[in-house]
Amino acid sequence: MILFEPFHLPFMARALAELVILGALAGTVGVLVLLRRLAFVSDALTHTVFPGVVIGYLMAGEGGVFWGALAAGVVTAVLLTLLTHRRRVSEDAALAMLLTTLFAVGVVLVSRQTGYTADLTAFLFGRVLTVTQEQLAQTGVVTILIVVLLAVLRRPLTLRAFDPEGARAAGIRVGLLDLVSNIAVALVVVAAVRAVGTILVIALLIVPAAAARVLSDRIAVIVPLACVMGAAAGWLGLAASYEASVGHGLRLASGGAVVLILVAMYGLAWAAGVARRRVRLDRASGAAGLEALR
């Protein structure tokens, strides 16, 4: 059975654990991204975390990647919070320029390395098969931290996402709450950087939550659903890439496979959502028809 067999290998087991935890974490935080419309923040983070990763790597080797990413992620989260509260995000041309510049700095720095294309690909798309125990532990700590944070803040976060003015009127410190949200997203990007890279993490953050939203109107259902879909996509994607590479000699990058599985899940969810609504409409019109007959 290809869903279990490959994972007897220790490196595959570690890769599986990393992707399942990341998928679950990103799926959960993705609901926050969806409800607070933070897709823009996630996008900005992928651009700024990349040079952080490169600088961390140049300064301290493999071990510096996490800390470089963390520093860049937190600084970005703080700056974006300040920018949005001064309502300057509308100057999006300037912001886009700044983000691309930072990204280019990362590319330029990497290009000075000898094994440059290999490094570049690793930073952009991650290397899930070389995940170490230490990385797993870091991902685990970040996950616990964020899950506790979201659980404690769920009420103010929901109120702020639904009704910002009402949240302010209720005495909630919206600026502080927004900073916490942005940092949570940044931590997910940082945690995911070495396994799936800075580019694909966007899909992990956006797609499971979007698919879960199509299937349910209740946050209490959407969160576990997105969490499970993210984890399942990690598992299926890794199994598919192993089977293609080992069983059929087809090289299939695991990060890409995970994202494609996610998109397929979204497609299925969308179809199910359409069907569900149609059933409801039929029932409603059926009831209306009966009413009319009486």
Partner: peptide, 29 residues
């Protein structure tokens, strides 16, 4: 607030919106 300033797509039920009025008394946890 004015109702039309709020996102009609937000996944929240009527009773959950009303319960928000009790948040201050309920607390966070």
């Amino acid at each position: 607030p004015q109702a039309d300033t709020l996102d009609p797509d937000f996944p929240i039920s009527v009773e959950q919106v009303v319960m928000m009025g009790r948040y201050r008394k309920i607390g966070w946890l």
